[in-house]
Design a binder for these strands. Structure first.
Lengths: 161, 161
DNA sequence: CAGGATCCAATACGATACTG
DNA sequence: CAGTATCGTATTGGATCCTG
């Protein structure tokens, strides 16, 4: 990706993408969210080259998404953990997982389940809501640029069926 | 990215990422969600090379995220519109935009605002909730591999708390 | 085991020119 | 205007070897 130009774009999405880094980074974050902590975990889970993994990890640490913490089991090597910034990516990961589960299912069934620990059931789709919890239909959601560009009503013509 | 291996991963996130394609694809989708329809819109908005843009667009059309529709204004050229599959990426985009707005703000202020058209105010963070709208704290959300997925040893030691 | 160093291959992207 | 064709380059990732 064009690292430099992305970060300078006046768009929160572009800057988020640049901070995350790459597809591999998202899969690493996924692994941490599922309990991975060690270099070898990522290596085994992802089938990624060591140097690539190392560079993605340092990139995530430098970017403040992951941090190195002393190993819980007393190992000489540090472990990787999510920072607050990294944990805050949960909605992105959940949204991605749910979309993939719905639109690109694997033949052998859903393979990344997002579940409510209390009920042990799959979570409903993560979706825009108002503070009181009411779901907002997409036609009432607008994405607009801060300056300039027209505030077009999003998706209007497709929603009326 | 490693297109082939990603799609074969038994992970909804990996497959979602592969279907989307690349960072550029997400920015194109963002533009469509903000009202862009024509080749020139994307070109101007993104500052992307024509051939790159063309290939990303056909990739998105082939992947069923975008579709070509006759121009509303009678132009000889088709326009690009989101399919249902594409529209359903809204939670991903919103989550990304809100994360970027929070953690990677541009010096000149927020630059992709997600707004409730009714109240004209910024939406609250998109976040996992139960059906009744109750917010679920992250500690009560579990992301796990489904049964049948290759089991990794580090999952077990993490799952018992 | 966690990485770093090197080398190499694939490709994604950009610049430019061209076409219907 | 909306692409396609061609080319050159830069980046990314993989393979292998090495080390504390």
């Amino acid at each position: 990706m064009k690292t430099k130009s992305f970060s300078e774009m006046q768009c929160s999405i572009a800057r988020a993408l640049e901070q995350v880094g790459s597809w591999w980074s998202l899969l690493i974050i996924r692994d941490v969210m599922m309990g991975a902590r060690r270099f070898k975990h990522f290596e085994q889970s992802l089938g990624i080259a060591k140097n690539t993994l190392a560079s993605r990890l340092t990139q995530l640490v430098d970017g403040g998404v992951l941090e190195k913490v002393p190993a819980a089991d007393g190992s000489a090597f540090d472990e990787y953990a999510l920072t607050e910034r990294g944990r805050d990516l949960a909605p992105v990961m959940i949204a991605l997982a749910q979309w993939g589960d719905k639109w690109a299912p694997h033949k052998k069934g859903p393979s990344t389940e997002i579940i409510d620990a209390e009920t042990a059931e799959k979570l409903p789709r993560i979706w825009p809501r108002r503070d009181d919890g009411e779901i907002i239909p997409l036609r009432e959601v607008r994405m607009k640029r801060a300056r300039g560009a027209p505030r077009l009503n999003w998706l209007e013509e497709k929603e009326k069926n």
